[in-house]
Structures are given as C-alpha cells and as structure tokens.
Design a protein around this nucleic acid. Structure first.
Length: 733
DNA sequence: AACTGTAAACTTTTT
DNA sequence: GTTTACAGTT
C-alpha cells in the first residue's frame, strides 16, 4: 500500500506523535486512519513503551489481524522483536478476560458462547418457564429487547426496576428467566461478553487495578460503532492514565440498530475534558469524482457535523449509473464490466460488488459462475450456521461444558436414537427437580421414574460415549503428546454417529453435509497451526485448544472470510465492506426499498443511517465506481416494478435520468479494434455457441472489451465481444 | 418414534 | 423462492 510510504500530512503527523492524554481522531474515509493508528503504536513501542502495555480494540478479527501485521512490519524495519501487545476485537478481548476471571461474575471460566440460534432456543425455554407462548412473544423481538438493554449496561434486575408498563414488565420477566437459563448452562451470549466484563471491572477493584496498571495505552478503532457498554469498559481501563486514543467517523456509523451509540464519539470532548481532537479530512484513496459523489450524498444528512472531505488526486472517471431491466441483466452487466476492467489490467481481487441484503448475492453468483469469473462471497458465518456443523460443534461443546443444555437438546436425538419428545419431557422434569443438567440427569433415568426400557438404554449409551471421550481427552497426559485437535474433532464426528448418519443416504444434500464435516476437521487443523505460531511456547492441551477453537468459531464474522491474496471478485453486504478498499466497486440494487431499505423509509434517523451505509459503499472505491439498479426485481417469488433510489439523485445533484448508451469509463490506451468488432454492428445477426442466433441491439465500443447487447430467443444478453466468440450471420444496415 | 408432505413465514444489516 | 413448523401417516 502506498499509504505506508507516503509522507504524513501535518494532521496525521500530529496524531501519530500524540502521546499522553485523550485523543480523538475524526477520520474521514480513506484519510489514512489505519496508517495513523499503526504508526502511533510503532512510535510508542520505539520510544520504550512495552508491547504488553498496549491494548488496541477493533471490530473484526480481520481488522485486528491487519493492524497487528502492519505494526509488526513497521517495527521490523527498526529491528525490534515481536511484540506481545493485545490487538483484538472487543468481544474476544472480553472473552479472554472472562476466561481468567469469569468465576467472579458468572461463576465459571469454562463457559460456552451462545450464538443467535442458541439464544433463540434459550428464549423459548424462558418463555415456557414464564408460562408465556412464543406466538405472542416473538423470540427474535424479545431477544433484541434484551440485547438492547445489555448494550446499555442494563442487567435483568435493573431492567425490572425500571419497567413500568405491561410490555416492559413482561420483557423483564423473560430477561430474568433467560439469564438464569444462561447461568444454569454455564453460557454467555454475545452481549454478555461485554456486559459481564463491564460488571467485572465495576465490582472488582482488584481486577480493574491489574488491567489499569497493565494497559497504559488504549486504542479503539471504529469508535462510532461502539455501544455504551463498550464505552464503559474502555473508560474503566483508561480511567487512571487517560491515555485513550479513539478513531472513527460519525458519517460511517452504520450499526445503530445493533446498539452502537453515536454519542460516544460526538460527546468525546464532554467525556474527556482535556481531550485533543484531530480531524483528517483529506482523502488519499479515491479519485475526485468518487469523493465528490460521496460528499454530495452525505450532505443530505441533517444530523451531522459538517466535515470537509476532499482529495488532491486526479478527477478520474465519473461514476457510472446504469439501469437494467431485471436483476439478471443487472448481474450480467456487472460481470461484463468486471471482465472489461480485468482485460485492461485490473486484477479481480481489486474488485468488489456490494449490496444491501444478502439475498442479492444469489443472482450475482450465478452470473459470475456462468461467465467463469472467479468470485468469493464474504460470508464467514454461513459455514457455521449449517445444520451438520452446528451438530458437530454441539457434541464438542457438550464435551467441555456438560451443563450446556441447548447443545444437549440439539444432539441427543441426532442421529436418531429413539429418544423422542416424551422421554425428553420426562428427563427435563427430572433435571429441573434435582437442579441437574440434562446430561447429568441421564444417569438417573430409570424404569422406576417412568422411562421406557428402550429410552433408558439409548440414553445410557449416549452418556457412555461422553464418559469415554472425557476420560480420553481430559486426562491431560494421554492426549498432549499424541492426539491433535483435529483428531479429537474427527473422532467425535465418527463416534457420535454423525458420519454414518449422513453417509447412509447418497442424496446430494447428505454428500454435501459429509463434505462439510470433513471441512470442519481441516478447519480444526488450520486453527491448531495458527494457534501454535501465535502462541509460541504455550503448552496447548487438546482441551485448551478445543476451548480456543470453539471461541474462535463463535466469534467469526463475515468479513473474516476475505482473503486479500485470492484472485477473486469479492461479493458482500455494505456492512461487511466497512474498512476495506478496492479499485473497482459496484453497488447493486440502488432502488427505493432496498437501499434505502423499506424498513427505514419512514424514519428519519434510520434513513440517515441508510445514507451513511451508501456513503460507506461509495468510499470503498479507489478509481472506478459502478452503480446499478433493476427496473423489475423478483423478490419472494414475485417480480415487481422498482423505483430508482433517491440516493442516486442526491449524489449526482441532478434529477435521475436513465442512461441508455454510455461509455462508462474512458480507456486510456487506445488499441486498434479487433476484427470482430469491425463487422458486428447494431442490427447484425450473429450466432452464439449456447444462445443460438440473435440480433445485435446495441454495441458499446471500447478499444478492448467492447460489450454488445444481443436479443436471443431466450432473451437479451450482455456479452463481451472477445469472450462471446460470435459468428456473424448477416450484416444489416 | 420416525418419516413425509404441505402450510406459513420469511429477509435488513452482525459481534 | 427457501426454510421451518406442524399435522398426519406408518
């Protein structure tokens, strides 16, 4: 990246040199924020600050990894040794603290982290315990109310005290019950990681002192997306020395819906009276037209501090705005453009297609696949949401936490063991009566307390498998030397019966599932390798590794799946694109109802967040920006007319006019056109290998990568001339 | 208890 | 168009 070699601006320099006291860097998109943060850390290290005194918090693992790498390379040049600084996401930092001190707040350090599906299951149980039904009380809605509370540092008791109306009183009741289920299962949810850490720091002066003393320099990236609980955590650690440096941009705040509190960044000066504020408005990433487009758009937000965004780079190409007939045409046009740019030397890895909702990826993938253009969908979490993976992980989870009833329920009868609803109800009653976990209760199930002989045998078998696994993996010596994490994972998949279960049928689906299970084993191998290189000298028992592995799995994010080295176009949501940059960016689906999303249209605050989301998307582009929409779009099986996004009007500053034939970008070095393009003109009849004979509707001539629109029997197609291998049938004039 | 087929709900974004 | 939930059947 050239940002590394370029001399720093005065403002950047000032931020890098800042040492003591609170610092807020208001960093516009592409203003060299990462450079500033990494150089500042390097600077601190070089001036004698010990690596372990540094705490840098980010939002994704990928951002953490990049930051660590860049700091390392900066100090490599100065011949310094590998630092032991803490660079991690908020959530994994908190998880690690709770692994050390969790027993002081949640009574355990061997907790399991529940994902959304686990949370839903726990809420359903809570509703049942409260005698409420889940059709009146949607688990999803209840969960978001609880999540909101936790993000504001409101625990169940406080929530109950503050509840005045029927609705919040009911939520309070469910919240309490939900939390007690989590505690009973030795489990925490995502928000608990933060909430319980904040509690720990508040209640335990001893722990607070240790952390305060250790982390002399605290840094937080993407500060506009922190919530109140995160603010409290950082604040407590930094309260003594006040060496807190936060970096962010209010215009890029896109997580308010998840509890992010923009007043953290807006009120920074209020929170830290003597704080320094350094704005970085100069953009080093994008060419003039792109910066201008972004600035035009964001100016339509009223709730903002006006901040100048400018660039001294060349004007560059104007963004292209194209309307297509439907989403298939849209996808094909995007692929065409990718092919064209690839032809003139833009590598695929420097291209991205962004969209508002994940469901848009399907059509795009199809077109990319058909055209043979390599692509990756940034969906790191998708793999771990698969049924078979969740099942395998539940087996592993139950191995390290026998109280994890949610995991137990997911696998007790998968593969089917003849343990149905009746037996489970009976078991649950027994567990409740004795305050045991479900796995513990199995041992005490018998004919006398109402179980059938068959279910008693199946359950005993199940318990025996676990006993064996525990003996084999918990007696430390036996496994440290010989078995690896991957061996353990493989063994659990085999002996649980999952492998056999999915190999019985040869349906395509089950073959897939089996492959995914194999992939999980290799994921374990990868993790083990990574763990060893990152934790040199730490003796890792398989059990310890398993903890770390499961934690890692629980905290993966979509953007973690992006490998900058792969030579493929990246497809992802606008949210996942935060913090990234590409030469060529497409934003697809610029339609009212999609971007801005229909659920935000009637609320000014939400509308402004949609606008910021679009702004984030635009500012990911360095040189080329393509904005597309479809006049008709099929959603939920029905094709509907669409309306162009109001954002298009806002960013161009002109009423939106559909462009029919536009040369989106000038190509710098003109080459003589190839022989095909000389003969093929509008009206020509041509033959295509797959689509048959068609009539040329439109030709966009470019020195390389001319595109043609051809009407075939099967419909209109956009093709790149060189790739299509068209055969001329007749030329009409 | 396990399997099969049909109805209904679903999609905003994610650590 | 896809996934989940539940009712009905064996």
């Amino acid at each position: 990246m050239d940002s590394k070699s370029r001399a720093l601006t005065e403002a950047q320099q000032q931020a890098v040199q800042h040492r003591e006291g609170p610092l807020l860097v208001l960093a516009g998109p592409g203003s060299g924020k990462t450079t500033v943060v990494t150089q500042r850390i390097a600077q601190l290290l070089l001036s004698g600050v010990q690596p372990w005194q540094i705490l840098a918090l980010t939002f994704t693992n990928k951002a953490a990894k990049e930051m660590r790498g860049r700091v390392q390379s900066l100090i490599d040049e100065s011949g310094m040794r590998a630092p032991g600084m803490t660079v991690s996401t908020f959530h994994s930092f908190c998880a690690r603290l709770l692994r050390d001190w969790g027993d002081r707040v949640i009574g355990t350090t061997t907790f399991t982290i529940y994902d959304t599906a686990d949370q839903k299951s726990a809420v359903k149980q809570a509703l049942k315990a409260c005698g409420m039904n889940d059709s009146n009380w949607k688990p999803g809605a209840v969960l978001s109310a609880i999540s909101n509370a936790k993000n504001k540092l409101i625990d169940a008791d406080t929530f109950q005290q503050e509840a005045s109306d029927f609705y919040s009183k009911s939520i309070a009741k469910i919240y309490k019950s939900y939390d007690s289920i989590l505690r009973g299962n030795d489990a925490v949810d995502f928000d608990d990681l933060l909430l319980q850490t904040a509690k720990l720091l508040d209640q335990d002066g001893d722990v607070r002192k240790q952390l305060e003393d250790r982390f002399q320099y605290v840094m937080i990236d993407e500060y506009q997306d922190t919530n109140y609980t995160q603010f409290v955590i950082a604040n407590k650690i930094a309260s003594n020395h006040r060496n807190i440096c936060v970096v962010g941009d209010p215009d890029q705040s896109i997580y308010a819906w998840r509890g992010a509190d923009i007043s953290n960044i807006l009120d920074f000066e209020k929170h830290y009276g003597e704080g320094t504020v350094i704005p970085l408005g100069r953009n080093f990433r994008s060419t003039g037209h792109i910066v201008k487009t972004a600035a035009n758009l964001i100016e339509h937000n009223t709730q903002r501090k006006d901040k100048k965004l400018y660039t001294e780079l060349e004007e560059g190409h104007e963004p292209s705005i194209i309307s297509l007939d439907d989403e298939h045409e849209e996808a094909e046009s995007i692929v065409c453009e990718a092919l064209r740019l690839h032809n003139i030397g833009v590598p695929y890895k420097e291209m991205a297609v962004l969209y508002r909702v994940n469901s848009l990826s399907r059509v795009l993938e199809e077109s990319f696949r058909n055209a043979g253009v390599p692509y990756v969908v940034a969906r790191g979490t998708a793999f771990y949401e698969r049924k078979e993976i969740k099942q395998a992980l539940s087996y592993l989870r139950l191995l390290i936490n026998a109280k994890d009833d949610v995991a137990f329920l997911r696998i007790i009868n998968t593969p089917t063991r003849g343990i149905g609803a009746t037996s489970l109800n009976r078991l649950a009653a027994l567990a409740y009566e004795r305050s045991w976990s479900l796995l513990e209760s199995i041992t005490f199930a018998s004919k006398e307390n109402g179980f059938t002989a068959r279910s008693v045998t199946s359950m005993k078998n199940f318990a025996d498998i676990y006993r064996q696994w525990q003996v084999d993996s918990c007696s430390d010596e036996s496994l440290t030397a010989t078995a690896s994490l991957a061996d353990l994972v493989e063994r659990v998949i085999r002996e649980s019966g999952l492998e056999e279960f999915y190999s019985k049928s040869s349906s395509e689906e089950d073959v897939d599932r089996l492959q995914n299970l194999e992939e999980l084993v290799s994921a374990a191998t990868d993790f083990e390798d990574r763990f060893e290189t990152e934790n040199e000298g730490v003796v890792a028992t398989p059990l310890r590794l398993l903890f770390a592995f499961l934690e890692n799995v629980a905290l993966v994010s979509d953007s973690d799946a992006i490998d900058p080295e792969n030579g493929a176009v990246t497809l992802m949501t606008l949210h996942a694109s935060k913090g990234l940059e590409f030469d060529f960016v497409t934003i697809a689906g610029l339609e009212d109802g999609l971007l801005p999303h229909e659920r935000a249209v009637y609320d000014d605050t939400q509308m402004e967040e949609e606008r910021r989301l679009c702004y984030v998307g635009i500012t990911r582009a360095r040189t080329n920006l393509l904005l597309t929409n479809a006049r008709r779009r099929t959603q939920r099986g029905m094709s509907k007319r669409t309306i162009a996004s109001r954002f298009i009007r806002e960013m161009t500053g002109e009423p939106y006019i559909e462009q029919i034939t536009v040369d989106p970008w000038d190509v710098p070095d003109p080459d003589p056109a190839d022989s095909f393009s000389k003969e093929i003109t509008v009206g020509s009849l041509v033959r295509h290998k797959r689509f048959g004979v068609g009539k040329v509707q439109r030709v966009i001539r470019r020195p390389r990568g001319s595109t043609v629109t051809i009407k075939f029997k099967s419909g209109e197609k956009h093709l790149v001339l060189e790739y299509a291998k068209l055969e001329l049938v007749t030329t009409q004039f």
